[in-house]
C-alpha cells in the first residue's frame, strides 16, 4: 500500500512528529511504501538544518533524514508555511534577498498542490497534528 503522510504539529513542542515517525517505521516494516511525508504549518521547522537538540533527547530532524534515506521517501516542506517561518532553500533565499539559506539537505520545498496530489494518488493519507 502507498501511504501519504501529513505532519502539521510543531518540531519539538508537539509529539506529532514522533508519532508520525513511529507510524512510518511500523508501516515500512510491514511492507508498505510511504509515498511522501509532507510537513505543513508549524511542522515546517523540521526542514531547518540549524536545530540543535540536547544529547539525551531524540533528534527528530535526523531521525526523519535517516528514515527517508533508508526507505527512499521524499520529505517535503510546504513553501508558503516555510517562508513565513524562515525555512528557506538557496533559491528562495536569493528570491527574497535573504543572506542565508537553512534547508536541511534531506528535505525539499514544494507547494500544497504536492500534498493534494499525493493524497489522491496514494492508497491512504494519514495525518498527525
Amino acid at each position: 500500500m502507498k501511504i501519504n503522510i501529513l505532519v502539521n504539529g510543531a518540531l519539538y513542542s508537539s509529539q506529532a512528529s514522533y508519532s508520525a515517525w513511529q507510524y512510518c517505521l511500523a508501516a515500512c516494516e510491514a511492507g508498505h511504501q510511504i509515498s511522501q511525508v509532507f510537513f505543513h504549518q508549524d511542522a515546517v521547522a523540521h526542514g531547518n538544518m540549524l536545530s540543535v537538540v540536547m544529547s539525551d533527547e531524540p533528534d527528530m530532524v535526523e531521525n526523519w533524514a535517516r528514515f527517508a534515506e533508508h526507505y527512499s521517501v521524499p520529505l517535503v516542506i510546504c513553501v508558503s508555511s516555510a517562508e513565513r517561518r524562515g525555512v528557506l532553500n538557496g533559491a528562495l533565499a536569493t528570491e527574497h534577498a535573504k543572506t542565508a539559506a537553512n534547508l536541511h539537505p534531506s528535505f525539499s520545498i514544494a507547494g500544497l498542490g504536492t500534498l493534494t496530489d499525493a493524497s489522491i494518488t496514494s492508497d491512504r493519507m494519514v495525518s498527525f497534528s
Binding site: 500500500m1 513511529q22 507510524y23 511500523a26 508501516a27 516494516e29 510491514a30 508498505h32 491512504r124 494519514v126
Partner: peptide, 10 residues
C-alpha cells in the same frame, strides 16, 4: 502497538 495502528489504516 504502532503495528496495530498501521493495521487499522490498512
Amino acid at each position: 502497538p504502532y503495528t496495530g495502528f498501521v493495521e487499522l489504516t490498512e
